[in-house]
């Protein structure tokens, strides 16, 4: 699934600059706890989260996460967006809840980044 398709499914807004909407996303992971993200080898996946602080972007950077979707219409501040731009991590914002976001992406074929057992 491409980032562009994900944007379409979620009716999301892309808030980073120069975002490559053809970027392929194979897997997804949803969490608000960043250590959880770091613990479960979620490399190369889409991170769905309700947290918008700059640590989310830094977590994505160190864990090699491909893109971040912020749920419930929550937008990070300008510095966080700038950090994401500098690390080349696309940021999307959707008005959907995290539950709906996961549900719709799963329904459209996206699967979990973390397997049955970590």
């Amino acid at each position: 699934m491409t980032l562009g398709e994900i944007r379409g499914i979620l009716g999301a807004l892309v808030i980073t600059q120069r975002t490559d909407m053809n970027k392929e996303i194979g897997r997804a992971y949803c969490a608000d706890l960043m250590s959880d993200v770091l613990a479960f080898s979620v490399t190369q996946s889409l991170l769905i989260t309700g947290l918008t602080n700059v640590q989310v972007v830094r977590t994505a950077d160190v864990a090699d996460i491909k893109a971040i979707v912020f749920v419930q219409g929550k937008r990070p501040d300008i510095d966080t967006i700038a950090t994401a731009d500098s690390k080349n991590i696309p940021l999307l914002v959707t008005n959907l809840s995290m539950f709906e976001t996961c549900g719709r992406l799963y329904e459209n074929g996206l699967r979990s980044a973390a397997g049955d057992t970590p």
Binding site: C30, A31, I48, C102, G103, L105, E107, S112
Partner: peptide
């Protein structure tokens, strides 16, 4: 559940639960 949240929510959604 042994599943990750994304997967579990996907399955709950498929069962008809919404938010």
């Amino acid at each position: 559940s042994s599943l990750a949240a994304f997967e579990l929510v996907g399955k709950l959604y498929a069962l008809g639960l919404r938010c």
